[in-house]
Design a protein around this nucleic acid. Structure first.
Lengths: 260, 260
DNA sequence: CCCTCCGTTGCGTATTACGGAACACGATGT
DNA sequence: ACATCGTGTTCCGTAATACGCAACGGAGGG
């Protein structure tokens, strides 16, 4: 990765941009040392050290004791709180996710459309998956996730064209990379009112999603259940979709969008 | 506020420090314009504009449309996810908070000891409080909150002495600022197994907290309920404490600390 | 005990971010 | 309709500032 080949926007404040890059690196790796950070960003150790020191002073970064690798710090919760205060999905969606996750025993997520990707804003773990991955804040491709398909299927035609204009990246062996086939799938999604995703994002991972409606009947988010392929079988899908629909209506009501 | 009177640490990277200050300002105010930000930080408009632009490019800051005030951006969720992945209280505590908040109809928080303050790591809103404040990530003084008292009462004597060595800041008319009186309260807290906070943080705000125990029987966190004084009356306290204790045990179990 | 690896500290330089002023764009109000 | 105010952005010259370098101080490992 090192120094990005593409010339960076000169209007950017370099050190701030680097500092955020440090945070993103830590969010991705979990933890890292100064040397590793410096190598990854393509800067000198001393520069990395100062950046981290500054972030540490603000508690955005922390380390185990006096010595050791660095992680994202607790001070970040301040900002997380600020964003949840605005995004109703997070605040209101939490309880809905939790309830559904417990009922299904699978991981439940709420995602919204953010630019060209599906952004997971809320998550609850099913009883079974202890070591399940944390998807909150993760951006996932629209064409390779159940939530993404739901959001995509509901987008206005012009927007849909724009989103499908680029290459469809292959994430797993069964990812749909053919635009024509994807459009067929999206049409069916719009008709059925739900979308599935069978090992298209990750091998062995199945998921199913339904839309969440806003006050004008527009799709504002998607709620999905995900789990290992053997547990989310084709046969079980209808039952899960029904549960998801109930949760979706619950969510809509809680967000002040009475059922139409 | 403007330029801090105290000379800043020269080892800090100035622009990064300022950028974080922007984020903290936004987290505090909810939203702000460039001019306001510049004034608050004591920098020129152009400087503020560049800082915000850089943060915006990384989606840590966003604005309504093309024009308008800035807020904390959705990209912040990436980091929020990274910290929740480490802090079990957040992940596991969420459902517990939600359940209790629904049952009580009041706001429920989980807080841990972070340096010299109580840090709220998880929160759920009660049905009644629509416009309630978001405390997640907020640092609250140990001597003026119910959670703080619980955490303080459980701290080893040496640590307790250290934490009480400074001045006890007065947050509201009824804040306990007398160290002697506070120590008496803390003794009672340790005996009773819960602490209250009656208009000591904010006028009209009552709260009550109980400890959450770790595997060694040590106090690792506090769970509290808060609400308007007229609703959290003295009479209602015993019932709430009982509910809190149930939730606390639930939380301990979920975190892998079987009841002793 | 030496050697290696990691992170920090001083230092000189030139990159870089800053502040100033002019500019562009809407929103107001008269 | 126009003028005026208040936004936020852009350009530019300067010097403050952050960078890279190299040397240093500590931990751990052989």
């Amino acid at each position: 990765m090192s120094n990005n080949g593409e010339a960076r926007d000169p209007a950017l404040v370099q050190s701030v941009d680097r500092a955020v890059a440090v945070l993103e690196l830590l969010a991705r790796n979990g933890e890292a040392g100064i040397t590793e950070i410096a190598a990854e960003l393509g800067v000198h150790k001393s520069s990395a050290s100062r950046l981290v020191y500054t972030l540490q002073a603000r508690e955005l970064v922390e380390q185990d004791g006096e010595r050791g690798p660095f992680r994202i710090g607790i001070g970040m919760l301040r900002f997380a709180g600020a964003v949840t205060g605005q995004l109703d999905y997070v605040r209101v969606g939490g309880p809905v996710c939790t309830a559904l996750a417990e009922r299904l025993g699978e991981t439940v997520n709420i995602a919204v459309l953010d630019n060209d990707v599906a952004l997971n804003v809320s998550q609850a773990w099913g009883s079974s998956a202890v070591a399940a991955q944390n998807w909150v804040g993760q951006r996932t491709p629209l064409h390779a996730t159940s939530s993404g398909k739901v959001l995509l299927a509901a987008a206005p035609p012009a927007e849909q064209d724009r989103l499908l204009s680029g290459e469809l990246e292959s994430c797993a062996p069964r990812t749909i990379t053919d635009p024509v086939r994807l459009r067929t799938v999206l049409r069916r999604t719009a008709e059925d009112g739900f979308a599935t995703c069978m090992e298209e994002l990750e091998a062995g991972l199945h998921a199913v999603a339904v839309p969440v409606f806003g006050s004008q009947g527009d799709v504002v988010a998607a709620i999905s259940a995900a789990g290992p392929a053997y547990r989310l079988s084709q046969k079980r899908m209808p039952a899960i979709v029904e549960e998801l629909r109930v949760a979706s209506r619950d969510l809509s009501v809680r967000m002040g969008h009475p059922v139409l």
